[in-house]
Design a protein around this nucleic acid. Structure first.
Length: 429
RNA sequence: GGAGGGAUGGCUGAGUGGUUUAAAGCGGCGGUCUUGAAAACCGCUGAGUGUAAAAGCUCCGUAGGUUCGAAUCCUACUCCCUCCGCCA
């Protein structure tokens, strides 16, 4: 959420940010509401002040029990009865205009950072860096779903029987590969990169979803629990960022770095027909997430570090990837700047997103009321929040299957992962 | 599911209708003393909004209600704790 005061004072900046994103918002109505809010509040505070002072007077008079002033007292009480009614009616008007204001401001996306390239969609995302050289195959590489089914470690058909389309079902070495990757990633981030491991709830309330920006605008993307105002998490970002909502943190404990493995649930509304095969686009998938809370002045340095921490996983697995900077039109609602890591998928011959690392600046912190206090300074400031996938686990399995496949149909396990696989060096039938 | 207790500032915790603008302690900041530190002592110290700075206003789990006036009384809800039952 942007600060209303900032939006009112910088209408042109916000207008440009919106159009760069290819979005619109009713800023006209917003400034009207803000003006009305001010008028109502002014009158309301005036009346409340009067009520407070006269009520104190009444208290003093009652204590004095001065009979001579009892008539005057009755008059005052009668007058205050009227004032009180007007206060109530103004409070109602205030609440109404405030609600309208909140409704608008909650649906305005974050302002892209100055370094974010302006562009319309994913075609305009510039490459930030490339790592590793795609392997040259002396046979036609198979897509991961074919490899997985041939090795009998993935079974999409039976998964459909259990639930429906777009749910995963792993067997044997496949299930173990997924589990190994989760442990491998968590171990790397906790021991090498200084993150604290967290195991959060997989179901959150409406407030938490609003804090991180999934709501109120994107409810269609979420799975909601019937009979509850609870949702399945689409990413660990939601529960982990909300760990510190409504808190005032001490400057000295920043940055706070958390890593968490959770399953993620997405309805993938509007994605019918996209990536219908394989592990790329599922309603349920595992992800290891990285979340940071930082001071405003360090958040962009921390974003670079976060990105490197995520990259380190693919580097260790020796799988080629590239990093792109998302342009204004392709960036998520809450983000000020996002890097996507895209892993090489040889069967399709394309790079596919496997991680998304973002700095939200104070956008989520303002919604979630996450502040920090500097030593020896009055007042509080909003923290900056960041997060990134480190990495999407299902997609990593897909990348390993495709990049490490052999002519005989087997898949060689990357060396770094072998200790987690009980020393297994390759998956064969 | 049944019974009872509770929710107050960064933390602990007093406060059952009005000159209390929420006591006190801890923590934090500053000072005195000291070569330095600790201890002791003194002072300052909730969050927002608003202002040039003030004043003012809001906030005692949330939402309503009663009242001239509510942390305090009433109603509903949420969450937490204890005990019983069930249970991985």
């Amino acid at each position: 959420m942007l600060e209303i005061k900032f939006v009112i004072q910088n209408l042109l900046i916000v207008q440009k940010a919106l159009s760069d994103r290819g979005k619109t918002a009713d800023l006209e109505v917003l400034s009207q509401c803000d003006a009305r809010r001010k008028t109502v509040l002014l009158e309301l505070e005036d009346l409340r002040c009067k009520r407070n002072t006269v009520s104190d007077q009444i208290a003093i008079m009652k204590k004095a029990e001065d009979n001579a002033s009892s008539l005057h007292l009755e008059q005052l009480v009668a007058e205050m009865r009227d004032v009180s009614l007007r206060v109530k009616s103004l409070e109602k008007s205030f609440a109404e205009v405030e609600e309208k204001l909140q409704g608008i401001i909650l649906e305005i996306p974050n302002i892209p950072h100055i370094t974010v390239p302006v562009g319309k969609d994913s075609a305009d995302n510039p490459v930030y860096k490339t790592s590793g050289i795609p392997r040259v195959f002396d046979f036609a590489p198979l897509p991961h779903w074919t490899i997985g089914e041939q090795l009998r470690i993935l079974d999409f058909e039976r998964a459909t029987r259990i639930t429906g389309a777009r749910f995963p079902l792993y067997f044997g070495a496949g299930a173990r590969l997924e589990r190994s990757l989760i442990n491998f990633m968590l171990d790397m981030h906790t021991t090498l990169h200084g993150y604290t491991e967290v195991l959060p709830p997989f179901i959150v309330n409406r407030k938490s979803m609003t804090h991180t920006g999934q709501l109120p605008k994107f409810e269609a993307e979420l799975f909601k629990l019937e009979g509850w105002d609870y949702f399945l998490i689409p990413t660990a970002e939601v529960p982990v960022t909300n760990i510190h909502s409504d808190e005032i943190l001490d400057e000295t404990i920043l940055p706070i770095c958390y890593t968490a493995h959770t399953p993620c649930f997405r309805s993938e509304a509007g994605s019918y027909g996209k990536d219908t095969r394989g592990l790329i686009r599922q309603h349920q998938f595992n992800k290891v997430e990285l979340v940071k809370f930082t001071t405003p002045e360090s958040s962009y340095d921390e974003l670079e570090i976060l990105l490197k921490n995520a990259e380190a996983v693919l580097k260790a697995l020796q799988i080629p990837y590239r990093v792109i900077t998302l342009c204004t039109g392709d960036m998520g609602f809450s983000s000020a700047k996002t890097f996507d890591i895209e892993v090489w998928m040889p069967a399709q011959g394309v790079y596919r997103e496997i991680s998304s690392c973002s700095n939200f600046e104070d956008f989520q912190a303002r919604r979630a009321n996450i502040r920090f206090k500097r030593r020896g300074r009055k007042g509080t400031e909003l923290v900056h929040t960041l997060n990134g996938s480190g990495l999407a686990v299902g997609r990593t399995v897909a990348a390993i299957l495709e990049n490490c496949q052999q002519a005989d149909g087997s898949v060689v396990i990357p060396e770094a992962l072998r200790p987690y696989m009980g020393g297994v060096t390759s998956i064969t039938l």
